[in-house]
Design a protein around this nucleic acid. Structure first.
Length: 634
DNA sequence: TTAGGCTTTG
């Protein structure tokens, strides 16, 4: 069959029927690299998923390896033509049928749309292009796949992981095992093992092996992987799938220096075990090349190589020094939602258009503002305005402006009032209105009180005893809410309303509150027509890694990041102390930056401003401090 | 024909 008129029909994975031959698109959620079957052919097993969230397991055979799809990474996008659909174990299964052909695209949004294929001629329409782009964009939302690709610095003992790395040395160990020495520009956090080999057995680039000795790991590959391992040229970029970081010895804390981690690629093809050599124009390979070129070996050298030259000396090192070095490999933050994302060097981020999302691993070189009170802001989610949160001095002034002699205070049936003369020379009074529930007064800890004329200090004291305080002013025989000061106080939370967006109603509306539940700030704001302002920390972090630096804001996700409520910190010295402790651990001004802790952060880029003033900004999100890891630095 | 992911471990 030939000719330009050929049109292909693609079937969604939830529409497949047994006994048919179909054409499909999908995202790779699992794959076995091509391997020699027990018959005459090479074989590859690939599972794909599409927007219908239905998976299809496929088994393909081909007389030569090139006839099988060139997949290097979970998330790659595939287009298969002429696969036979049949039932096996009560599931649909795709098998290569006569004329089978495949196109494979990188799954990364924005990567070039160049298909990997062995077909001499193939169709690729604008519609196909759209399908690939759609699958790229939606793959994070699809269920049922996660990549286990890691950087060495993120690997935990015991894990199985995939590693994109550069081969810098190799050696035959015996018939069924072969040694690969590799690095990926990051340092493994625990003590890696070194496999003993005679000098003359090791094929290696002598310069790089000594220069990179603290970055390389030894991986032993077994059985079916030996043949391929032998054939790979030194300097190649390779992916080793399903390496086992096997903990040797006991994980006893007191004997930490007795344990080390071995790296094995076990025999067989289970769990996608295998080694691949992606093409040099692969985006991940290009990125790795950049990282490896940029790594500052000197700065990252953990130990003086003249002092520590062999593994024997390493193991004799005193535990505290060893432990300190390990701490510096740890990240003091965690990314609960995006652990599978790969790290992007800071230098690469600024080359991308916005909006995009990245994971970075960097140190906090500098923070603005320097003082805590300057970083607490009030944000209106409706008009997006950002105001400084008033400090104690401003609060004093705000409430002083509302002092009263108590002569005009109105009475009403739904509250009971008490007048308190402060006894000060200014003949000032504080009037407290106790709001009734079902016509009954509540105990102080359950009470909502409206207060006229109190000072900041007096309101602070009242806030210890009463559940909720609403500062009010009397005007024309009514109690009024005024947004020039906090409109509601609950313990350490002093809440404000947006003057622009609120549509203030009479305090009498408080009677319409549901009395079944407690005094909910959001409910109260609603009945009073107040558009609540949210407290935020707004900070500008200057992050730095081996490739460059980047300014990123921390604001909308700041409470999640610090796990400290910004709405309470200005009134709570314990919280202030805690934030201070965190900032000195993240950015300890007394130390060299190489001693600062690493932080893994999710960063999103976005366009800000208009017209010629438009610029790309960066924001930290979905990232939180790990108290346990942070404590090692403080 | 072959393999049919998968709860691995030198």
């Amino acid at each position: 069959m030939s000719g330009p008129a050929q049109r292909y029909v693609y079937t969604a994975l939830d529409q497949l029927k047994a006994g048919t031959v179909a054409n499909v698109f999908g995202v790779v959620s699992f794959f076995k690299l091509p391997y020699r079957s027990k018959g005459t052919d090479f074989c590859s097993v690939i599972t794909i998923v599409d927007q219908s969230n239905v998976k299809l397991k496929c088994t393909f055979f081909s007389g030569n390896q090139d006839g099988l799809p060139s997949i290097y990474k979970i998330g790659d996008i595939v287009r298969f033509h002429r696969i036979k659909i049949q039932k096996f174990n009560n599931e649909f299964q795709g098998i290569s049928s006569s004329g089978f052909s495949a196109l494979v695209f990188e799954g990364t949004v924005g990567a070039p749309l160049i298909p990997r294929t062995s077909s001499k001629s193939y169709s690729f329409t604008a519609e196909d292009q759209k399908t690939v782009e759609t699958l790229r964009n939606c793959q994070l939302g699809l269920q049922g796949f996660s990549s286990s690709r890691r950087n060495l610095s993120d690997v935990q003992p015991g894990q199985y992981f995939d590693l994109l790395c550069q081969l810098i040395g190799k050696a035959e160990i015996d018939k069924s095992s072969y040694l690969l020495k590799v690095w990926d520009g990051t340092k493994f956090g625990s003590l890696p093992w070194k496999v003993y080999v005679e000098d003359e057995a090791l094929e290696v680039d002598r310069d790089s092996i000594s220069r990179l000795q603290n970055f390389t790991i030894d991986v032993l590959v077994y059985d079916n992987h030996v043949e391929l391992a032998k054939s790979i040229k030194i300097g190649s970029y390779i992916v080793i799938q399903n390496i086992h970081a096997k903990l040797h010895g006991t994980a006893n804390e007191n004997q930490e220096h007795d344990t080390y981690v071995e790296f094995h690629l076990h025999g067989g093809t289970g769990f996608g075990r295998g080694i691949s050599v992606p093409p040099e124009d692969d985006s991940d390979v290009k990125e790795l090349q950049k990282i490896l070129d940029a790594v500052d070996i000197k700065q990252n050298q953990p130990l003086d190589p003249d002092v520590i030259t062999s593994d024997i000396q390493l193991s004799q090192m005193s535990p505290p020094f060893d432990a300190l070095e390990r701490c510096q490999q740890l990240s003091v933050t965690v990314l609960p939602a995006h652990q599978q994302w790969q790290v992007t060097p800071l230098a690469c981020i600024t080359k991308n258009k916005a909006p995009q999302k990245f994971r970075v691993r960097a140190r906090l070189k500098h923070v603005q503002p320097h003082h805590l009170y300057q970083s607490v802001k009030l944000h209106c989610s409706k008009c997006n305005s950002l105001l400084d949160a008033p400090d104690e001095e401003s609060l004093n002034k705000m409430f002083e402006d509302r002092f009263t002699d108590g002569s005009n205070t109105p009475n009403a049936f739904w509250y009971q009032s008490a007048v308190w003369n402060t006894g000060n020379l200014d003949n000032r009074t504080v009037v407290i209105h106790f709001v009734k529930k079902y016509d009954i007064l509540q105990s102080p800890e359950d009470s909502l009180i409206m207060v006229e004329g109190g000072s900041f200090k007096e309101l602070s004291k009242l806030s210890i005893h009463f559940n909720t305080i609403i500062p009010v002013k009397s005007k024309e025989q009514r109690l009024e809410i005024d947004l020039s000061a906090p409109f509601l106080i609950q313990g350490n939370k002093w809440l404000y309303g947006c003057i622009k967006c609120s549509n203030i109603k009479s305090s009498e509306e408080l009677q319409s509150l549901s009395l079944e539940v407690g005094w909910d700030a959001v409910e109260i704001a609603k009945v009073l027509g107040v558009e609540l302002l949210t407290h935020l920390f707004v900070m500008n972090f200057t992050l730095e890694d081996e490739t460059g630096s980047l300014n990123a804001y921390l604001w909308r996700h700041s409470e999640q990041f610090f796990q400290i409520p910004p709405s309470e910190i200005l009134m709570n010295s314990d919280l202030q102390e805690r934030l201070h402790m965190i900032m000195s651990a993240l950015c300890p001004s007394t130390k060299q930056i190489s001693e600062y802790p690493w932080m893994d952060c999710c960063i999103r880029s976005y366009n800000s401003g208009h017209g010629s003033k438009e610029q790309i900004c960066y924001e930290i999100f979905d990232t939180l401090l790990s108290e346990r890891d942070l404590n090692r630095f403080s």
